[in-house]
Computed example of a mutant assay.
Amino acid sequence: MNERPIEHGTIEHVTIEPEVLYVGTPAFLIVTVNDDGTPNLAPASSYWALGRMLVLGIEADGQTAHNALQQPDLTVNFPSGDQWRALHSLSSLTGRHPVPEAKAKRYRHEPDKFSAAGLTAQPSEVVAAPRVAECRLQFEARLERATPSADGSYYLFEARALRVHADPAIVDAASGQIDPRRWDPIVYSFRHFFRRGEELGWLPSSPIERG
């Protein structure tokens, strides 16, 4: 896509009413533990991090919220761009039984979402919830606080990352840090999946040596 350069004061904005405000965030897979000890796998896209604390937006009536409020261990797994179909296949599945009334038209109950998505549960090292083996970047985490939203429709989960696992192919050997030039996460924008575009620049604080 070729965009014209924006000159000072040249944009004529219009007022719109978008259905969602997902301007572009990483899509991820969150794994929690069901009451019977089996894993629940779910896609999500409301995510940000500060230091080792992950902040996740999770629907209140889903199995993920139910599980994490009972057993705080979880994993956050980031698929690469070529794995977007796995997220798509999970978008209409729920671990809740019976399916909540608000989801009944779009969702169906699926107890084994790993198999449904063609993914593999990989044991974690410090938490009870497994990781997603096919994801190149995985966080083992534990929920520290769950704050209900003003309307009660979702929770803000604050989860501390306890261990980070990465495919060596996306790690900078010199610094031991994730090399963003080798990492291709899925970006979720207005209900569409995208791969990351070209690098535009970097901050002086980046630990990755510039070639």
Rank of each mutant, 00 (worst) to 15 (best):
A174K: 14
A129S: 06
V99A: 01
R163H: 11
P98C: 06
A27N: 04
A166C: 02
Q70N: 10
G95S: 07
T75D: 01
H97S: 15
S89H: 06
D167Q: 02
T64L: 07
D61P: 10
I6G: 05
L90G: 07
A159M: 03
Q138R: 14
R182P: 05
F139I: 06
S80M: 14
E134A: 10
Y22A: 15
D82I: 06
H97A: 08
H192A: 12
F190R: 09
D179I: 02
V171M: 04
P5F: 02
D151N: 14
P79L: 07
L74S: 06
L203V: 12
I178Q: 03
R210F: 08
P39F: 03
V127T: 02
K113L: 04
I6T: 09
T120F: 02
G118H: 05
F193E: 13
S91G: 13
T15R: 14
P207S: 04
G118M: 06
L87Q: 04
P148T: 10
Y154A: 15
E158N: 10
F193N: 11
H109F: 13
K105N: 13
T32Q: 02
A65T: 10
R210W: 12
L156I: 13
R52P: 15
A121W: 08
L54P: 03
L54E: 13
A173S: 15
A141E: 02
S153K: 11
L29T: 01
D35Y: 05
Q177S: 14
